[in-house]
Nucleic acid binder design. Structure first.
Lengths: 153, 153
DNA sequence: TTTCCTGCAAAAGCTTTGCAAGTAC
DNA sequence: GTACTTGCAAAGCTTTTGCAGGAAA
């Protein structure tokens, strides 16, 4: 397992205690936490960490491609973050949470995408297709007759 | 072409002048405007329309499935809205705009997805697969060496 | 030593809500 | 007539920024 310090070095990021904690917490979870959730997770070891630092750090991480910033369900609610940048599909739960599609199934979804359709799209847009990143997301829509339960705390 | 009034009736929505204008403006454009952009478009005919009404109206429309609310690039910036609810792929441009993947190409992307992968996923989640909605989005990532041009007006 | 990072608080950006008046049904 | 909509302003929530002190390179 590569150390966070080395990863940071590779991505041109300064290595601070806060960044290490945040990255390790994010890499260790399979949930896709919001900035506040991540703060809560890390506050157990560091009481002084501030939410602004969490945001700034996650922004630095996603800018350089170390992690992935995910928009939440239809843009409502806070963003979520994913330490796994490899191409995999996500599930958007009705309550706003995001989970990963299990790898075998994800491969079936992502691999099913026609590469030639992607290059046609690149041609259409005038962009080399290696600059196109595919995002496959499966949204779980609420049961038609279901009462809205906004138990989102 | 079905009249907005009839569409609203079908979706159980009251028909007001503001809603008609907004729906027609949204249905007439191929861009995926933000609430503010839509307000600007409609302000040409109605100077009194307020942004709050635009948001409330778009929310009512998307709640009942008449339109689709799209989160903007990685949750940064305002939401965008799409009057087309059929399953089609979107392109996220680096400047935050969203365009549709042309229909031929979109069909190639979306149809290529293995339906059995979707039902496996439904099984895994314990959700009937008709409650799973596939979203295919192609993100155009900025040119590796490009200066950030935030010309986003 | 220089540059970048952190924490705090304050600001900014997007969206929702409370209320009184008006409109659809 | 009743219930829902509208417009305005104010509040709410998420994210960013300014600044002084501190830590990394």
């Amino acid at each position: 397992m590569e150390h966070a310090r080395d990863i940071f070095r590779r991505f041109g990021l300064r290595c601070t205690r806060q960044r290490e904690m945040l990255y390790e917490a994010l890499a260790a979870t399979t949930s896709h936490p919001t900035a506040e959730e991540l703060l809560a997770m890390v506050r157990e070891s560091d009481t002084d960490l501030s939410l602004a630092t969490v945001y700034n750090t996650l922004d630095a991480f996603s800018e350089c491609g170390l992690i992935r910033r995910l928009s939440s369900l239809d843009g409502k609610g806070p963003c979520r973050f994913d330490a796994t940048t490899s191409e995999h599909a996500h599930v958007l739960l009705p309550d706003g949470r995001i989970t990963d599609v299990p790898e075998e199934i994800s491969a079936g979804l992502v691999r099913a995408v026609n590469p030639s359709a992607l290059s046609s799209l690149g041609g259409h847009l005038g962009v080399p297709s290696d600059r196109l990143r595919l995002r496959v997301t499966v949204e779980v829509v609420a049961e038609p007759g279901a009462r809205e339960s906004e138990d989102n705390d």
